[in-house]
Simulated scan of single mutants.
Amino acid sequence: MIVEKNSHASIMKSVSPQVAGYSMAVVGSVSYGLNPLFALPLYGVGVTPMSVLFYRYGLTVLLMGLLMAVLGQPFHATRRQLVLSLAMGQLFALSSVCLFVSFKLMDAGIASVILFTYPMFVALISWACFHERLSRVALVSFILAFAGICCLHGDSGGRQSVLGVVMAVASGLSYAVYIVGVNRSVLRTMPAFSLTFYASLSGLVLFFVCCGFGLDLSPLHGASSWGCAAGLALFPTIVSLLLVTRSIHLIGSTPAAIIGALEPITALAVSLLVFGGTLTWLNVAGVVLVLFAVCLMMWKNH
């Protein structure tokens, strides 16, 4: 056992912080892109989006609470932090609602690509509300992203496709407001574990109410359904949060944010390879435009 521990320690020491940081960013980003992999099978057996989110947030609160207890992370928060984290949790939950509803209205991979525009909304909100500088590169990126979203509408032209795009954009906007709210308040100094725990708890209460205080909650039947619900809580939520947060400390926010482009790429790959989604050449052009626009803006403005 002593030999094994020493060997393990020497291996960890041989891995540079840069390699570890980039590896964590890749795994964390890919994990977040697995949302469709676990959500769509639940939709397929009749579980409603609100019920899916209730189970996701409920298991997230449970697993995060256990993890915090094991790691000795603090549950304590000041009254102001607690109130604000619960309020921000409603925005976080709204973003989840819009995204998961869009999964039912359009291709889940394309919806995830549109969600990836949230850094642009962050820049726009910061410019409009806090008078931060908006560079020419950012303006060009906005135009490219808008053109990409128009391409992602596809050829269907149906009302559902339009509504799906609107919901995906609303998800990105809600998430951007959440990020700005956290970074511009006392929550900025709140530990990531505590913030996620209380924000998820706030969302859990919302989804419980939206499910008729549990009366309209779709039941989960079988190990497969429970496995999907647990997968949603574990990979796109807890694993993604912990690894991406740690990678930012090791390699910086810009490289980690650019590697975040793997999130929508993963979701798109899952949609195409696992669930038989289809892409037109116009859709492909839209994906390229959105990813290029967001990565360009983040690279030039950090």
Rank of each mutant, 00 (worst) to 15 (best):
residue 30 V to T: 05
residue 70 V to D: 14
residue 133 R to W: 14
residue 216 D to M: 07
residue 71 L to S: 07
residue 77 A to N: 01
residue 119 P to E: 04
residue 236 P to E: 08
residue 218 S to W: 06
residue 163 L to W: 15
residue 229 A to W: 13
residue 49 P to Y: 11
residue 151 C to N: 15
residue 68 M to C: 05
residue 21 G to M: 03
residue 277 G to S: 12
residue 88 M to H: 00
residue 95 S to I: 06
residue 103 F to Q: 08
residue 166 V to G: 03
residue 149 I to Q: 10
residue 204 L to M: 08
residue 6 N to C: 14
residue 300 K to V: 02
residue 51 S to I: 11
residue 107 D to G: 14
residue 67 L to F: 06
residue 53 L to R: 10
residue 247 S to M: 11
residue 138 A to N: 07
residue 112 S to E: 07
residue 109 G to W: 13
residue 208 F to N: 11
residue 195 L to D: 01
residue 184 R to S: 07
residue 52 V to L: 12
residue 41 P to Q: 11
residue 24 M to S: 09
residue 195 L to K: 01
residue 115 L to A: 02
residue 291 L to W: 04
residue 98 C to T: 05
residue 52 V to Y: 10
residue 22 Y to Q: 06
residue 238 I to Y: 10
residue 26 V to P: 04
residue 289 L to N: 11
residue 297 M to I: 02
residue 101 V to W: 02
residue 254 T to K: 15
residue 255 P to H: 09
residue 199 A to W: 01
residue 260 G to T: 12
residue 233 A to V: 15
residue 48 T to M: 14
residue 140 V to M: 09
residue 155 D to T: 14
residue 24 M to P: 01
residue 231 G to S: 02
residue 162 V to F: 13
residue 95 S to K: 02
residue 152 L to A: 13
residue 101 V to R: 01
residue 231 G to R: 00
residue 215 L to A: 10
residue 288 V to L: 13
residue 156 S to L: 09
residue 152 L to D: 13
residue 212 G to D: 10
residue 52 V to I: 12
residue 135 S to L: 05
residue 193 F to A: 08
residue 75 F to G: 05
residue 65 G to W: 00
residue 202 S to D: 00
residue 20 A to C: 00
residue 18 Q to K: 12
residue 251 I to S: 04
residue 72 G to W: 10
residue 242 L to D: 02
residue 238 I to V: 06
residue 197 F to N: 00
residue 114 I to L: 01
residue 226 W to T: 00
residue 57 Y to A: 15
residue 222 G to W: 05
residue 269 A to F: 14
residue 139 L to D: 05
residue 138 A to M: 04
residue 150 C to V: 14
residue 263 E to Q: 15
residue 96 S to V: 04
residue 236 P to L: 10
residue 82 L to E: 01
residue 230 A to Q: 05
residue 75 F to L: 12
residue 241 L to M: 08
residue 211 C to E: 02
residue 182 V to H: 07
residue 132 E to N: 07
residue 92 F to I: 03
